[in-house]
Design a binder for these strands. Structure first.
Lengths: 228, 228
DNA sequence: AGATGTGAACCAATTCACAGCA
DNA sequence: TGCTGTGAATTGGTTCACATCT
């Protein structure tokens, strides 16, 4: 089938590095669009996104050919194409395990609801927290905290495919196993622990201490005081 | 100077990808050490860290030659060497701006104190939060929330070199500018905004919505339902 | 014998520079 | 003319496979 209509570059394999930047372009474009900007050049969009224009154009070329030579990109059209590629049209159902300060912060983080992520369940091991109603999403909705034994039911009832682990490190692997057994196939892990999962389950981790340690490493090199 | 004593591989330029993994090795090694494990092979340490043994050995080779052929690595010795390389012997003074749920979570996150990061200041724009005493670090110490106008003084008095931005996106760039002006040279940014800084200032960002969007992208590809 | 440390081969990502189109 | 889209060149990172040393 030599003449398939898929823009030659799209379908199959957008580089991982590109995928990681699409959400940024999406956010910047959304801002521009609601500010009424109709068109942007790669140069402008790149500057606003903190990347080089060559990188931006290469990234976008993986999605297809959505710009106009000599002009730039139509803001609305491009924001739509990126949203579609990222699957932001669907609404993703998320369960958060661990409702400490961090879990709380995640539950009522505005940025989730606005991008199609719905918190359908909250789970915590602490009995004193169970039953608490926590505001989640934008419109004053609340979600009640369920006990840890209910984890599987919360995932199933909520039809969640994404799990967020915001527990202490010691609990993380067990929680992960149970999320996966209940059908979760994507996990965002905030616990400082290495998780092992079956193939087919994606894990991303956010490690706060690690980020500071990376900064500290570079910071140290800026001040060549003790060169022992 | 042909015979400089620097293990040939060390000093100057540890690859960024390696730096990003050192904190993980450090944490895993620290666990092993306190569990009394005296020696580990690259195979074991790699498995516990979620990487391949070849990658681990290559990473460690950038620091120097700290293993013993036929045996493995001395746990205590290696944990020390990595700590030194990361600058974990110093204690890093951190100011957190924005004391909402996320800022709270960061302030009393145990993982910071235990790795040489000390929260020396908390700043918030909300007058109702100013004056609040927030537990930070391990040993029941508290830090009082200062008003936004005091930002510069908090940085200077605390001699902070690292700033954490946990404000809404709309405030992030202004806060960033003020942190930099006050002498901060490393910034960890949780606000969904692209920051611009002078050269010499490092910025790392942690974007919660972005992480979920990356997971959603891959999730979408797992279920080839709507192939439009 | 057994595991490290490392050159060489490979693969992914970025940058360059310009052909091609509006 | 001006800006996109993309091959080619380059840089950075990973994997392989084995010489080297305890």
């Amino acid at each position: 089938m030599p003449l398939s209509r898929e823009t030659e570059a799209s379908r199959r394999g957008i580089p991982e590095a590109t995928v990681a930047r699409l959400p940024i372009y999406h956010r910047v474009l959304a801002h521009l669009a609601e500010r009424g900007v109709a068109t942007v050049s790669s140069e402008e969009l790149a500057a606003a996104s903190g990347v080089t224009s060559a990188k931006l154009r290469k990234d976008l070329s993986h999605l297809g050919s959505y710009g106009t030579r000599g002009v730039g990109y139509d803001t609305e059209y491009l924001v739509y194409q990126i949203a579609r590629e990222l699957g932001l049209s669907q609404d993703w159902r998320v369960v958060i395990v661990g409702v400490g300060n961090l879990g709380h912060a995640l539950a009522n983080y505005g940025g989730f609801a606005s991008r199609g992520f719905r918190v359908v369940g909250l789970v915590d091991a602490d009995p004193t927290r169970v039953g608490e109603k926590i505001p989640a999403g934008r419109d004053g909705e609340t979600v009640e905290v369920s006990p840890l034994v209910e984890l599987e039911n919360v995932v199933l009832d909520g039809e969640a495919s994404i799990g967020v682990i915001a527990t202490p490190a010691s609990a993380a692997q067990a929680v992960c196993d149970r999320l996966v057994a209940a059908g979760v196939t994507s996990i965002l892990n905030f616990a400082p622990a290495v998780l092992s999962t079956p193939v087919g389950v994606d894990v991303r981790k956010v490690d706060l201490a690690t980020e500071l340690q990376i900064l500290a490493f570079h910071e140290q090199r800026k001040h060549p005081e003790v060169r022992a």
